[in-house]
Design a protein around this nucleic acid. Structure first.
Lengths: 249, 249
DNA sequence: AGTGCTTTATTGCATATGCAATTAGAGGAT
DNA sequence: ATCCTCTAATTGCATATGCAATAAAGCACT
């Protein structure tokens, strides 16, 4: 832990001390200053730096650990955790994982790629400026060689400049983005639609057959990152979630 | 707080003391011994009863408050909270609320009701005994008079005996169950299907049109409570959720 | 180099103490 | 009764202290 890292922890004076500490550390993690794997200063160091008692620092860190942002081990210390790759009711962030989890062999094919100015609907989707540079991608994912899901994706190149050079030959764009970009907020919508002719052909189903459509938009600190539409053949897929009265189980 | 209520708090000796206390109180809430609104003993009372220090009791209760099971106010004390009526990404537990939230007038119609022995598929759904008594209900929900969602429901009468007498004239069965039954676990699945002829007619859409199908099963302490299939016309509905890398936002 | 022992840094847990903030309820004044 | 004030019950927060558990790091000996 370098001096600059511990000096970055700064309180804002608002609310209880333990919560100021919790938010200070949380913000350093969420905005990328402390990427996953970074060592969080030990309680004694934070204690000195912040002039708080150890129990107060402890309380803040224990809470962050419960929230999953950090991992703590006796003697080893505290490190920033890797964000979980799956979420709540929909374990669909990584399509390779999803397919392999079902016991199938995974493969994918980039059908089309076009980089350039954002089209009007994309601009509307994110509220971008008219001149925003984006990458448009169409990807078909297979399970045991059978079409599994059709992905149409837009990546905002101003937010993820490295994507302009990336060919996505080894890793599909969704997984690549998980590892090469930060995101702080996402929104998704689920609906049912009838497959259009070209989509039906790609997915090897009949035109008009019901499909699950998952649309997801992702931002980092208010800046657009990516938007994706995933079209699943309805007969073959269902999303399952379990929960209790007070939240996920 | 009667003596019987505080005497019900019992530790199991497993793990940290604060966590034993947390689980003891949590279990009393989840299994219905302390229904919503019940006063939880003040910290001093629990302290004496359990022989723990106030800070330890405090830690357990603060955590339960963060989890949403109890509400605490200075001087007033601590009470058991009402379970939230909506969950995670899918705010679909109360259809009246859902419809009104969209700005429409809500109404519903019980199309059919049949009480008796569970049919074979229902038995399989829940793993019930062959002789289990259930209520089968078909309900159509309207938004501004337009069909909104078709509900097919099964209620396990052994778990919710009061449902046998209830006519569901004032409150639809989903909402009635929320208020008149306990549940500790639920599972739901979302898929896309084509509307069958009779369903399409009820929903006033074309046969074969894509629909979102939400299937939910609910248990209390391992005993089946209810199962429901909700069929939403696909063109008209989408479920939206927002979340961050570490969970719901 | 490896092997086993000891030291020590770090977190986990529980207690005791004190004061602050909130507000229900008691009691008093009108 | 109504309003006001005061009291006291209850939770919220921070500190200080001590010990336990864990495991990394160092060290001694082969």
């Amino acid at each position: 832990m370098s001096a600059s890292q511990i000096d970055a922890v700064a309180l804002d004076g608002a609310g209880p001390l333990y919560d100021q500490i919790r938010r200070a550390v949380r913000d350093l993690i969420l905005n990328g200053a402390w990427p996953p794997g970074t060592a969080v200063p030990p309680e004694h160091a934070l204690m000195e730096r912040l002039g708080a008692s150890r129990m107060t620092v402890h309380r803040a860190l224990v809470q962050l650990a419960r929230e999953g942002l950090i991992t703590r081990r006796r003697r080893s210390g505290t490190i920033v955790a890797s964000p979980p790759a799956s979420h709540a009711m929909l374990d669909i962030l990584s399509i390779p994982d999803e397919v392999r989890g079902l016991g199938h062999a995974y493969s994918y094919d980039i059908l089309e790629r076009r980089d350039g100015r954002a089209l009007r609907p994309v601009v509307a989707l994110f509220g971008l400026g008219r001149a925003a540079e984006v990458a448009h991608l169409t990807v078909l994912h297979f399970a045991d060689g059978v079409p599994h899901v059709l992905e149409e994706r837009v990546i905002h190149l101003a937010t993820v400049p490295a994507a302009a050079q990336e060919r996505f030959t080894a890793v599909p764009p969704g997984d690549w983005l998980l590892q090469n970009s930060l995101w702080s907020q996402a929104e998704h919508a689920i609906s049912a639609v009838a497959a259009e002719a070209d989509q039906a052909q790609l997915l090897n189903i009949g035109e008009g057959e019901p499909c699950l459509l998952v649309e997801r938009r992702t931002w980092n600190q208010g800046e657009a990152v990516t938007a994706v539409r995933l079209l699943y053949p309805g007969g073959r897929h269902r999303f399952i979630g379990r929960f209790g009265p007070y939240g996920k189980v």
